[in-house]
Nucleic acid binder design. Sequence first.
DNA 1: AACAAATGATACTATTATGGTATCATTAAC
DNA 2: GTTAATGATACCATAATAGTATCATTTGTT
Lengths: 132, 132
Amino acid sequence: MKLITRDTDYALRAICKIAKEKGKVLSVKELTGLTKVPGPYLRKILQRLNKAGVLISHKGTGGGFKLARGKVNTRLFDLIVIFQGHFKLNECFFKKEKCPDTGTCPLKKRIDKIEKNVIKELKEITIASLLR
Amino acid sequence: MKLITRDTDYALRAICKIAKEKGKVLSVKELTGLTKVPGPYLRKILQRLNKAGVLISHKGTGGGFKLARGKVNTRLFDLIVIFQGHFKLNECFFKKEKCPDTGTCPLKKRIDKIEKNVIKELKEITIASLLR
DNA sequence: AACAAATGATACTATTATGGTATCATTAAC
DNA sequence: GTTAATGATACCATAATAGTATCATTTGTT
């Protein structure tokens, strides 16, 4: 029922803080202060964002994370995919076994429609749009 | 990320089967056959639906469950509330502690909007509409 | 009256996902 | 070379989920 997990939420918060400091490199320590997210956990999140290309990391003294080029346009949808995997509101609970309603299931279509709308809206929420 | 849990899904399936047999009382055993949902688990679900007033149970030999009067108009939204509790896509992860972005959080509004739409659509999905 | 067939209520268990910590390796600045 | 940072991973605790088991109660049948 949660659209967004804690990971995603914290990631979003951190990225916003980073984005506000145009180009400046912020360390985990600084970001912990700004976001109140527990250090080691935040660090893991930032590492994932680095791997995903949203942030760029700098090692060594004075190191930290900054926003990668053009990534103010990262969408909430992208973050959800990074932290929560492929977006699907609608997955039949009869996975391997065959669902007794295969073919006739009227629910799928209805939820697909909802899903489509939600995805559209999640793609409209960009970092840039949140900073304004 | 799941809009619907297994409980809710199974409940919906069972109710649909029951609704198709207008007024007839169906036992857990019969419903297990129809839905392929494990017996004891299904039973627990049906009991909750009875408590919630969606179904009416009959004890003793030949007993089982039937749909309560007017409850073909039960909405998927209602079932979600019964099995998953109060519907909220958007809950700040800083619950007791104060969120560092209180007041300025721009995300809340955006997700509230999504939530509103989703709720509207979930309220349009009724048992009756799924039977057609 | 006895028995069987059903649900009511509840306690228990196993598995998985989530949230978070800890540690050692690596890199870079001074 | 030392220190301050991230990279990579392994680990752990808690909670939620999915499901089982059991005993009590009710009701129909003989």
